[in-house]
């Protein structure tokens, strides 16, 4: 097991380099001068521009800028953003916000996805199954932006059940609505996958054999159907967890939650390569860790893939 983990961690290093370099290159390739973007329409005096360009190494070649950014990240000297914010402070403020939002939305997403998926899978072509199909189509068709603003308007402005935006009401109140929105936009895919997987497994030969052997239904369900049906589901849940950061970018911006997603949005807007790479590195590390956990869980469910 230890060797397995070590191997995965070592394999992550070159991938991490490629990912961060790629992200940095993408930000670097974005057109327009970041300092001009920050200044808006106002002219910037040459001396001020020169000082800022030097401070953020904007005149250095691409690879030098990238290496300087990586050095800052690895040594923990994050410095400040173009707008003057202390990045370490920002991380301290923002990581808990995003973690709270991500956990809550995943709980919504997983509970709804698994419940509906399992139920629809066992009661195929029933009312729930058909409603799930309809809901899936609707959720997949409605863009996140529309869903988030509609949720904000209905529950925040009209019904006044939940805060419109901001983190002032603390956990859980401030996070309920954005988490619900992320959960709704994400649960459908999980539910569909769970349903299909259950249907496939229930009809597979080994389940028929188990039934022919005279095993009890409960035993068939818990020992034969679920462990096999949930394999692809666990994979998707892992990917979901890592992808939640993408959802947070939009949700935190619309619901004005001071999390990493909002930070990422600002940084991309201003073409702050250093911040984007820092946040991408964090996301990447999370991805690696989650992938590792998924693989371990995978092994626990299915002995065939244990410690591969």
């Amino acid at each position: 097991m230890i060797r397995f983990i070590l191997r995965r961690v070592l394999a992550a290093i070159p991938i991490g380099l490629v990912v961060t370099l790629g992200v940095y290159a993408l930000v670097f390739a974005m057109p327009g001068d970041p300092l001009r973007e920050l200044a808006g329409d106002k002219p910037i005096p040459a001396a001020v521009l020169a000082a800022k360009r030097a401070q953020f190494h904007l005149d250095d070649p691409f690879i030098v800028q990238y290496l300087l950014s990586m050095k800052d990240i690895l040594t923990g000297h994050f410095g400040t953003t173009f707008a003057g914010a202390d990045i370490a402070d920002q991380l301290r403020l923002r990581i808990p916000v995003t973690l709270k939002l991500a956990t809550m939305s995943l709980v919504f997403q997983w509970i709804a996805g698994l419940l509906f998926g399992l139920y629809a899978g066992f009661r195929r072509n029933g009312v729930v199954d058909r409603m799930l199909l309809l809901a899936t189509l609707v959720v997949l068709a409605v863009p996140g932006l529309v869903l988030y603003f509609t949720g904000q308007y209905v529950f925040g402005v009209e019904l006044k059940w939940l805060p419109v935006s901001g983190a002032r009401d603390g956990w859980p109140m401030s996070y309920l609505l954005p988490a619900l929105c992320i959960g709704i936009s994400g649960f459908a895919g999980l539910a569909r996958l769970t349903r299909t997987s259950i249907v496939d497994t229930v009809n597979s030969d080994f389940v028929k054999t188990a039934r022919a052997k005279g095993l009890g239904e409960q035993r068939i369900l818990w020992r034969h159907v679920l462990p096999n049906a949930l394999l692809p589901v666990v994979t998707l849940m892992g990917i979901d967890f890592a992808g939640i950061f993408g959802g947070a970018v939009l949700a935190e911006s619309i619901f004005n939650l001071p999390g990493l997603g909002q930070f990422m949005f600002q940084a991309i807007k201003l073409k702050e390569g250093g911040v984007v790479v820092l946040l991408s590195t964090l996301a990447f590390l999370m991805f690696i860790v989650i992938n590792l956990i998924v693989d371990i869980v995978y092994g626990a469910i299915d002995p065939r893939v244990r410690n591969v």
Partner: peptide, 28 residues
């Protein structure tokens, strides 16, 4: 100029501004 404060440009009309804002070579 080396303080890089944003309202620096306002003072470009004032006598002596150039002495505080000498031209800087690119990247320096």
């Amino acid at each position: 100029g080396s303080n890089a404060w944003k309202n620096n440009g306002f003072f470009s009309k004032v006598d002596g501004y150039d002495a505080l804002n000498p031209p800087t070579p690119d990247g320096a």
